[in-house]
């Protein structure tokens, strides 16, 4: 049984208490997308400002548990100022961290170690995998960001 300290790490609690990049951006030029977790009522709105292939600014509003809120804060810090290519790569790595090893877990195995250096602070969310019902909390912001990116005017 995974301990709670795996879930509620210092970094997570810090981002929950003092979320980064909180707020709104004027639309347009920013694109805004809303995400819901219908099971628990969590709601999140992601605003992104993309210029010349770079995610220049990101702001997030919404309500939810410590995992969904800290994940959105950590995400905003990780993707802000990055090229869209890098953003997509980070999204991919994070989603893999959350869902890529479910089969191994079901077989009683431990999640495969992901290269922590590539993840930076995001690695703090690794413990969520041991609490499968909370994965949907952690990925809400990421799915919403993916959606926002897909809605960018081409």
């Amino acid at each position: 049984m995974a301990g709670l300290e795996d879930l509620y790490k210092e970094i997570i609690m810090d981002h929950y208490r003092s979320p980064r990049n909180r707020g709104e951006l004027p639309t347009p030029p920013a694109v805004c997308t809303e995400g819901f977790n219908p099971l628990c009522g969590d709601q999140i709105t992601v605003y992104i400002d993309v210029t010349d292939g770079v995610l220049k600014d990101i702001k997030i509003t919404g309500q939810g548990c410590s995992i969904s809120q800290s994940s959105s804060s950590l995400m905003s810090a990780a993707v802000k100022g990055k090229s869209l290519e890098q953003v997509q790569e980070t999204i991919g790595t994070f989603k893999q961290l959350m869902t890529g090893h479910e089969t191994a877990l079901e077989d009683g195995g431990e999640p495969e170690k992901v290269d922590i250096r590539a993840l930076g602070e995001l690695a703090a969310l690794q413990g969520v995998v041991k609490f499968p019902v909370r994965i949907k909390c952690a990925v809400l912001a990421w799915n919403t960001l993916s959606q926002a990116l897909s809605e960018l005017p081409s």
Binding site: L4, D42, G64, C65, S66, I67
Partner: peptide, 11 residues
């Protein structure tokens, strides 16, 4: 948040 409350209580 209620989710965190429930998670803590589960411990």
């Amino acid at each position: 948040h209620p989710h965190d409350v429930a998670q803590m209580l589960d411990q």
